[in-house]
Design a binder for these strands. Structure first.
Lengths: 144, 144
DNA sequence: GTTAAATGTGGACAAAGTCAACTAAAGGAG
DNA sequence: CTCCTTTAGTTGACTTTGTCCACATTTAAC
């Protein structure tokens, strides 16, 4: 593989690390971290969500996940319901309060995107979007 | 701005958070963190690098940066030379050992890229690369 | 039925990051 | 030059985040 291509990819990775870093630090007038937000998001997207899926999906240590979930439960953002078919597992659900928080987070995240694209023309925005789709599709095929 | 576009962008951001996460956790059979690697990289890229530039560029707290640099100096990866024209500043340089480490890190990082693209055709790789260039250019114009 | 694997928890700890107070030097404005 | 402000960096005390290991329980596999 060409050195120059690798160079460009790494340059993009550094660049996008910075973009995401700004996004994720800025994340939230709420008192919750990016990780917690991602967990809430994943729970809301899945019909039968258990801790171990989150561990794999978000690449977080099991014990750490356990503690985060306990905290979220304590703050009544999520509920755990022990599975009837496999009592090792707990099914995870957002509470009303959790859904509301996630809603807030989504609004703020949308705002961040809007700011990121502020000043660009519709056509430029569309170019970026299409480029993102290309990257995601191609790499997705390839294990991600 | 269209809801659907925002949705796609955020999907990409989640996706690429995961990609970079894997990269950066995997980062290194060496005993150094991503942040330390980035600092070494930035020092090597600049002719007159001082701590405060790194603070701004990498978005890291001043006090934290101070400690990291002290550690890197102690491990003889970098050197500080107090500026003659402004004695508040220290100019930062990689030592031989630091350059060697960065070299190793670069080799490993290149390998990661190669793995990421493993199985894709040259044409697909080029599509991805071009897409990355588009994103970087357009967003770069826009403050990043 | 015994062994192995999966799921989750808890303790103890280490690494990463933050906040505020501080020193010291440089850059003005008068 | 003197006073004030800004910039660069350091230090202490702290919180948050993340890791490692041992463990209990339950299910799956042979």
């Amino acid at each position: 593989m060409d050195k120059e291509i690798i160079y460009d990819i790494r340059q993009f990775n550094r660049f996008y690390t910075k973009v995401l870093g700004l996004f994720n630090n800025q994340i939230l007038d709420t008192d919750y971290s990016l990780t917690e937000a991602r967990i809430l998001f994943e729970i809301s997207e899945r019909t039968e969500c258990i801790a171990n899926i989150l561990v794999q999906e978000l690449n977080i240590d099991r014990s750490y996940m356990s503690r985060i979930l306990r905290k979220l439960e304590k703050e009544e953002l999520i509920e755990k319901k022990s599975s009837t078919i496999d009592s090792r597992k707990s099914l995870l659900f957002l509470t009303k309060k959790g859904e509301e928080l996630l809603g807030q987070i989504n609004i703020q995240s949308d705002d961040q995107i809007i700011q990121l694209f502020n000043g660009l023309t519709d056509s430029e925005i569309n170019d970026i979007r299409n480029s993102m789709m290309v990257i995601r599709e191609k790499l997705h095929k390839n294990r991600f």
